[in-house]
Amino acid sequence: MSAPAPVPHEAAEIVIEVSDLCVSYGRHEVLHDVHLQVRRGEIMVVMGGSGSGKSTLLRALLGLQSPSRGCIRLLGQDITRLGEHAMHELRTRMGVAFQGGALFNSMTVGDNILLPLREHTRLDENTMRIMMRMKLALVGLSGCEDLMPAQLSGGMIKRAALARAIVMDPPLLFFDEPSAGLDPVASAQLDRLILKLRRALNMTIVVVTHELESAFAIADRITVLDRGRVLFTGTPDALRRSEDRRIQDLLQRRADIAPVDPEVYLDKLTGAPPDA
């Protein structure tokens, strides 16, 4: 029996399939005809400017935001048609670490991480505690189980949230802005951890990030959202070679609204009509 290949084979099964996805908040549609396919063992990075719909896409994938149109299949199941119970079962196979971290402040770090195990399994308490400590060791937080979240730094909270997200060994892992607010060293550590998880557990991982360096370090493929539409999907190399101006702007971290022509910008600021 050989280990899973580090780079997923073209033929690996598709475990996340999004087609024609539209999502609205009230009357305001924020995702338009989004398509996305992710294969088992693949790391897909979702990028895009602030407000482009990255978190919304993630919420839709988790079944927390119903689409106004389109289809989302996870591990072969159409989640838009799943009942409460089946969705609950599917969620046990999805690890999630949200943008805000979100540990329960009233519980120790250890109890936070034990929560999914206590809720979804009938494992012995001793087994669960060893699993919790294994995950803490994995994210570099050995010995922190008895601390309260308020006693952790921002980076430590992120890692604790990741430990909780993976405590059930989920085949699917979703991660919103893992490295936001982390120093470069902590951020690079987190990248290595994500790669390690994929290699050892063959997890399929979707990561939303603003950090280009991190995206290029971990992604098999990158999807770029632009105002609710998929602007690009492909390998990091293909992204670098793209001649699309909006992609180039993203790669050079230029803001969408960056003025190209100083004269036009001045007119915008002063309200003077062009060619007046």
Binding site: T121, T127, I130, M134
Partner: peptide, 10 residues
Amino acid sequence: DSSGIATLVE
């Protein structure tokens, strides 16, 4: 999975 590994640790 890690429950199996934890069992071996026990």
